[in-house]
């Protein structure tokens, strides 16, 4: 397996595999971001904190 030139250090995943894992991370960040935004808006509606 170690002779595969596409393997990237240090996980031993190929480039494509690493990119897929990364895409899940990006997805998660986006979802968390949008959720946090909505949650903040809703809190601001019920208990405004900016004047």
């Amino acid at each position: 397996m170690s002779d595969d030139p596409n393997k990237v250090w240090p996980t031993g995943l190929t480039l494509k595999e690493a990119e897929e894992v990364h895409s899940y991370l990006i997805d998660g960040t986006r979802v968390f971001g949008v959720i946090a935004l909505i949650a903040h808006l809703l809190v601001a509606v019920s208990t405004p904190w900016l004047g």
Partner: peptide, 14 residues
Amino acid sequence: QFGGFAIMPFALLV
């Protein structure tokens, strides 16, 4: 599921 629960209490309060 996490996202739904995260905004649910504020949504209900509003």
